[in-house]
């Protein structure tokens, strides 16, 4: 069991959980992730290790609630516990030691670039982070990233920082001077756009791929992605790859494999939340209605 020691809400749908996992806290490196399983019967969910405190024996997970399993996770409160935390998985980021790097984070992808930016900064690399969100309230980790260098914030609606997409800000940076490496983590269309943008500049670009995973150790092949026409496993060969070699169209397509199941799971989940909520408020749960219907699919 891995108790939650702290929880805070970073944006309307992004939550940070600080979780006890002493061994992982001690040895994890930037770019690595864990697979968590909330309880008996729950799904195995890959999540990046956003931060770690070896002295306290804790790791931070920054979770965007997108479906049933992530909603269950972010509903945890300090004192609750996650049953299984396996890791650290994946190859650590291959980091440069000098020069200039730009870390581009879209949405919850910002949580993935944060440990990379931090480590690059520690090594003496000059780091600029470009992070984005729909509007001001969706921007996460701005203060944390400022400790690692300059931060450019972009919002789609212009409510904060620069108006527009992260790629526009990145283009200006590419034009302004030499960049040794770009790290891009976010929604697939964003990573693809970054890759297309940096390609003509010949800037080494790394993307972290969020393929669907089961075991995270190379035994299922479900996370296979196409890199330079070759099948590679995101969990053991990645999750980071040369963005210029990634077949993003295939990745985006494979991510839709379980869409109809996910929508049903979400609907079931929401139906289940109603009696659970009523329970908490002290009202008797409804005896008829969506509960029975939601149990069977």
């Amino acid at each position: 069991m891995h108790p939650i020691v702290a929880r805070d809400q970073l944006s309307p749908n992004v939550t940070r959980l600080v979780v006890e996992a002493p061994r992982i806290a001690e040895i994890r490196r930037p770019g690595q992730f864990v697979i968590v399983r909330l309880g008996e019967g729950a799904e195995r969910i890959p999540l990046t290790i956003a931060d770690a405190d070896p002295a306290a024996g804790t790791i931070s997970l920054i979770i965007q609630s997108v479906g049933a399993s992530t909603m269950d996770l972010v509903a945890l409160q300090p004192g609750d516990a996650i049953r299984d935390v396996a890791g650290p998985l994946g190859r650590p980021t291959d980091l440069i030691d000098q020069g200039r790097a730009v870390c581009v984070g879209g949405g919850v992808g910002t949580a993935v670039v944060y440990p990379i930016a931090e480590e690059l900064h520690r090594r003496g690399v000059s780091v600029t982070s470009v992070i984005g969100g729909r509007s001001r309230e969706w921007v996460i980790l701005e203060d944390e990233l400022r400790t690692a260098g300059e931060v450019v914030v972009c919002t789609d609606d212009g409510s904060y920082g620069r108006h527009g997409f992260v790629t526009e800000a990145l283009r200006d940076l590419c034009d302004a001077g030499p960049i040794d490496e770009v790290f891009a983590v976010g929604p697939v269309p964003m990573m693809r756009a970054v890759a297309e943008l940096t390609r003509p500049y010949g800037i080494r670009t790394t993307a972290s791929l969020n393929a669907i995973m089961v075991d995270g150790t190379g035994m299922c092949g479900g996370c296979r992605v196409s890199i330079d026409g070759q099948s590679r496993y995101a969990c053991v060969d990645g999750p980071e790859f040369d963005a210029h070699a990634v077949d993003f169209a295939s990745l985006a397509d494979r991510l839709t494999t379980y869409r109809s199941f996910e929508q049903e799971a979400l609907a079931r989940h929401e139906a289940c939340l109603i009696p659970a909520l009523a329970d908490r408020l002290g009202d008797p749960p409804p005896t008829t209605g969506p509960v029975a219907g939601s149990a069977a699919r």
């Binding site: 049933a68 199941f261 996910e262």
Partner: peptide
């Protein structure tokens, strides 16, 4: 792969319609 298919169904219990693993 058979590994993925069987793992989803057996270990992750997807043979049970109520399972969270698709």
């Amino acid at each position: 792969s058979a590994n993925e298919y069987l793992t989803r169904v057996n270990l992750m219990g997807a043979w049970n319609p109520g399972s969270e693993t698709p």
